[in-house]
């Protein structure tokens, strides 16, 4: 997972937003703002064949890379494990909605989870500590920094979200787990230009290279890993198809 902000090619082309949901207009807006790909997020409990059909149509019509992401919200770790197993075949990316201590921990320990979304949700602290950070790094679970939680929070409490993001970044630097930045957009008013996200992420102490990684290199790595997931037999063993 190497990426560099400085190269001119990367500067415009390879940004991914792994958490948006909506219709065709939101995908068009993402394309206009310079994203190379997006993942459409659906709630696991609401997901059905109609939504799947709708997703297939959107994927056919769009000019950018589209992936399907299922967001799992659950009350206890056992439920999480069941839901993750059931959704692995259905979705390209699996995201677990964090916030609860036990759920955050179970998500970090589960190899099939790709992203732990908003571990700081409805909390005073960041929802991450050194134990969870180590687990997340070991199991390759990325932690999501969701910009909508910053932008939709009351102005009076925004400082708290900024300090939670800052804490996640401090842990990331020490323990080396992956962090992704996503917009969490539900309408085109929630979407931001990648360069504006760089500037905004500077507020919570991210350098340009870190922002670039969180918006480009790591999302790309997650997408590529899941595209090849069927070919993996064991850890480190992959089926190679000869052409």
């Amino acid at each position: 997972m190497e990426g560099n902000y400085s190269t001119k090619k990367n500067y415009r082309e390879n940004f991914y937003d792994l958490n948006i949901s909506g219709n065709r207009s939101i995908i068009e807006e993402a394309e206009r703002l310079g994203f190379a790909g997006v993942s459409l997020t659906y709630n696991f409990d609401d997901y059905n064949s109609e939504i799947s059909k709708e997703y297939d149509e959107l994927k056919l019509e769009s000019n950018i890379l589209i992936r399907k992401c299922l967001e799992i919200s659950c009350k206890n770790p056992e439920e999480l494990k069941k839901k993750v197993q059931r959704s692995r075949k259905k979705a390209d990316i699996i995201m677990v909605r964090g916030g609860d201590n036990r759920i955050n921990r179970a998500a970090c320990e589960e190899r099939n989870v790709d992203i732990l979304s908003q571990p700081y949700r409805n909390r005073r602290d960041s929802g991450m500590n050194h134990v969870l950070s180590r687990q997340a790094a070991e199991n390759d679970v990325a932690v999501e920094i969701n910009l909508s939680s910053l932008l939709k929070t009351n102005l009076r409490y925004r400082h708290r979200i900024i300090s939670q993001f800052r804490h996640i970044m401090d842990l990331k630097r020490k323990y080396g787990f992956s962090v992704v930045i996503s917009s969490g957009a539900r309408s085109s008013y929630d979407q931001r230009n990648p360069m504006d996200i760089f500037a905004l992420s500077n507020c919570f102490g991210m350098t340009k290279n870190e922002s670039f990684e969180a918006l480009s290199t790591i999302p790309k790595h997650i997408i590529d890993r899941n595209d090849e997931r069927d070919n993996f037999v064991l850890d480190g063993v992959k089926t190679v198809v000869e052409l």
Binding site: R192, M195, A199
Partner: peptide, 23 residues
């Protein structure tokens, strides 16, 4: 300039209605 640029994406509403700035 980078600090001023960071201000624009934080603006989300004006008189209760949605708005968005893009640099």
């Amino acid at each position: 300039v980078e600090s001023v640029r960071a201000v624009l994406p934080t603006i989300t509403r004006f008189r209760g209605k949605h708005l968005v700035f893009h640099t």
